[in-house]
């Protein structure tokens, strides 16, 4: 799991990075908010970010607001880690879109516990996104089987949206998860049996003999 950290104080940046690496995370370090903002826009952007509030350029809150305003962006779990500890700061940070808020200096065990919460949320979001994707795909298939289908009253072929006539079973197979397993129904089975018997009946046998 890759975690982005943004912090303008190099002592805090080094400390946070070293602790996260010790815990087994891959760390992407940024020394200001603009750098962090850029890194969070890529396709392979980290899913968790720990941002300082006061930084040169864009601050942590602005990075957060930018993230939440981009509707297409992948969800990123943001922890604001800052020395600003007033209640109004905490409220402001969370209202700007942060998922969690911690004050500096931090205790590693508290950060570890909060990160676990973040990872659970990231995992849930990821699984939810997968399920939504699957449902959307299924829904699009269902929609393909809706509407008026022209069907030949003789051969029962149907005409698709490309003006191509095809067997109804192949059409349904292409537009749904349904598969066909050919086997005669009892009526057809009886008819087929009768036809076969007729074709080898006394008349034909007699003709053969003649």
């Amino acid at each position: 799991m890759r975690i982005l950290i943004a912090e303008d104080d190099i002592v805090s940046l080094r400390l946070l990075g070293s602790i996260l690496r010790k815990w087994g995370y891959d760390v992407l370090s940024c020394s200001n908010g603009s750098e962090a903002d850029q890194a969070l826009q890529g396709n392979d952007a980290p899913k968790v970010a720990i941002l300082d509030w006061m930084m040169p350029g864009k601050d942590g809150v602005e990075v957060c607001q930018g993230l939440r305003q981009r509707p297409q962006s992948r969800p990123v779990y943001v922890i604001l880690l800052t020395a600003r500890g007033l209640t109004e700061d905490v409220v402001g940070g969370l209202e700007a879109g942060a998922d969690d808020y911690m004050t500096k200096p931090f205790y590693p065990e508290e950060l570890h516990a909060r990160l676990q919460v973040g990872l659970r949320i990231v995992d849930l979001q990821s699984r939810l996104a997968d399920r939504v994707g699957e449902l959307e795909t299924a829904l699009s298939r269902l929609k393909q089987l809706q509407g008026l289908l022209p069907i030949c009253s003789y051969c029962k072929k149907v005409r698709d949206d490309k003006n191509y006539w095809q067997q109804i079973e192949s059409y349904i197979s292409e537009h749904s998860e349904a598969q066909f397993s050919p086997s005669p129904c009892p009526n057809c089975s009886d008819k087929a049996g009768r036809t076969q018997t007729d074709s080898i009946g006394p008349d034909s046998m007699g003709k053969e003999e003649i």
Binding site: L15, I19, E109
Partner: peptide, 15 residues
């Protein structure tokens, strides 16, 4: 604050 890791403490002291 550094999980008892004196080496890490000395590392950030240098910085």
């Amino acid at each position: 604050r550094v999980e008892g890791d004196i080496e890490l403490l000395l590392e950030i002291v240098e910085v």
